[in-house]
Design a protein around this nucleic acid. Structure first.
Lengths: 152, 152
DNA sequence: TGTTGTTAGTTACTTTTGTAACTAACAAGA
DNA sequence: TCTTGTTAGTTACAAAAGTAACTAACAACA
């Protein structure tokens, strides 16, 4: 009898892509990101990097592009493009830093602050809904595990 | 006394990006993906979609692009491009399906099978190392939670 | 002051992905 | 056979991201 390899493998413990953690992480990340992106995409026409930059400014107050780049682990060219896009949307303004004329102080303007507040609430609601779905205990556990994976 | 909003916020329960699940998912997914990608990128010059397609073929035997697309949740244009790249690397061959001349039967050629086996082992090693790091219990829990998030 | 090395940010170029339109083949009737 | 509608896969075009080179400003020191 000729063994059908592919068939046989189905049943034993050959590695399955669907339980490969990097794969699962990616699927879950994409799924969650897609859902939440409606909040900033549909209403403000923002991209993910823009929303992140906006969030950092709203959360931490005025910063330079460099500071955002480091604090958020976003490459400086991505930050640069996001800053320009946010500026074009009148969400932030830049002022050359007096003590170092290479760098610029980025500040949210009122519409940017408004968007920040709105998106901040949306994010909290999103998180609450997720806790609802997974249960408080598992939602915490998930965050904890993800943080442990973050560095490496 | 003038309140410094940004300062004040640091200490209370204002929402932090660093505990926003979609953000954490994304960071963790990128970190893990970057590490594992060395395996297929450096040695075979493959992109992520190519490795996924290769894996599906190795795991499930001959398939059409459509079947891969559905089974792996990858858009058909991405599959199309990955298939072409794998074909150029001599990792797979295509034969027009006799019962439907629109579709093609994709088969791994020996070098493709070899790459599949190698990457399959690498993936298992990777997973084992992760279990080592997180502990068996937490690694399982993580996969379980990610699967629950996958659909939505 | 002039030189050398570094840094903040931008731009140019390339690669990759997403979207939509397309081709060729099929299927089910009229 | 001649529609009409659908499907597998590709291609063309546009959007986004990565990489490297660049500009202008700084810093330290001969």
């Amino acid at each position: 009898m000729i063994k059908k390899l592919a068939q046989t493998r189905e049943s034993d413990d050959i590695f399955e892509l669907s339980s490969f953690t990097p794969y699962l992480l990616n699927q879950a990340a994409e799924a969650q990101s897609d859902v939440f992106s409606r909040n900033y995409r549909d209403r403000y026409g923002m991209l993910r990097t823009e929303w992140r930059v906006l969030f950092h400014l709203g959360r931490h107050g005025d910063m330079s592009a460099k500071e955002i780049s480091e604090s958020a682990s976003i490459h400086k060219t991505k930050v640069s493009r996001a800053v320009r896009a946010l500026e074009e949307k009148r969400f932030l303004s830049r002022v050359t830093s007096p003590d170092d004329r290479r760098s610029e102080r980025l500040s949210l303007r009122p519409p940017g602050q408004e968007a920040f507040r709105h998106l901040s609430r949306a994010a909290q609601d999103y998180e609450a809904a997720l806790e609802q779905r997974l249960g408080k205990r598992d939602a915490c556990k998930l965050r904890e595990l993800l943080k442990r994976l973050d560095g490496t």
